[in-house]
Design a protein around this nucleic acid. Structure first.
Ligand code: FES
Ligand code: FES
Lengths: 144, 144
DNA sequence: ATATAAAAAGACCTATATGTCTTTTTATAA
DNA sequence: TTATAAAAAGACATATAGGTCTTTTTATAT
């Protein structure tokens, strides 16, 4: 459903958050290694996330990526919106120019239910909540 | 969620089915006009659907696209599978190599629910059921 | 038989997503 | 104040999706 770029973004932010809790500020090379993503490309993705102010970065020795306000929850929606664009959760599943409940496509009722479930989910889940699951060993960040 | 190619495919098959019920065998130029899709590209997509045996075609004068067994229901899943590939509904939403409920990613429970709802939906909906909604004027095939 | 109308095929093009390599900028430590 | 370690930036490179154009094949009507 989501593009690889978005997947890298979410995994990277989760890893950064976990490391921040340990007092560390990881760099993109370390991040890429830990989340199993292409190194340079992950750097680019993190640059974009920093521009979108979803994460902060410091150049120079001792620099790396970190959250300025770790208590401010970042929903997955914010990440998806920043990378896939604002329209992601409002498009018509049948491919019409717009989704319009008052003049629906034949898929509307059922598709809108699925789409809205997804939307609700990504608004509930946050980088922090995913990181906590991993810290509690209830989930894994990567796969061998 | 779905690619444009898949959207064109579904709309094209629905239109073909509707026309078949009227005793017509539309060609790809007519189809493209009616579903508002690029003409030549729609031709290519229909070629692929014909190769996948989701629709039949006849060359030559009086030819066009049609269903050999209109009573044999075609689920949207069959169309998605033919175009997006077999893996579409089994991928991990967090981007791990595989989805594995026994060693889940932190998104697994919630993502799998959404993904499986979508899967269930596309297995229930058929080209025929969508076409019937349109014929009953309960839904629209296109948008001005 | 021949003309015609249609899909099939093949070569090509464009845009976007994904990914790599090299150079520049900047914060810190020594 | 210089060396170093880090992100930022920019120029490429590759893959895939999406799209167009031209030629070939084939079924039918005349
Ligand atoms: S009109 Fe198609 S999904 Fe709403
Ligand atoms: S393991 Fe990630 S969705 Fe199942």
């Amino acid at each position: 459903m989501l593009g690889k770029t978005t997947e890298y973004a979410i995994r990277a932010l989760v890893y950064i958050y976990i490391q921040n809790m340990e007092g560390e500020r990881p760099g993109f090379k370390e991040i890429a290694k830990m989340i199993d993503s292409p190194e340079q490309f992950t750097g680019k993705v993190l640059q974009n996330l920093a521009r979108a102010e979803l994460v902060s970065s410091m150049k120079g020795r001792g620099g790396g990526f970190f959250f300025n306000e770790p208590t401010n929850p970042i929903t997955l929606f914010k990440v998806i919106e920043a990378i896939e664009g604002k329209e992601y959760f409002s498009k018509c599943g049948f491919g019409l120019k717009r989704c319009d409940a008052n003049n629906p496509c034949p898929l509307h009722d059922d598709y809108a239910y699925v789409r809205d479930s997804f939307f609700k989910m990504v608004n509930e889940k946050t980088i922090q909540s995913l990181a906590n699951k991993i810290n509690k060993r209830e989930a894994t960040l990567n796969r061998l």
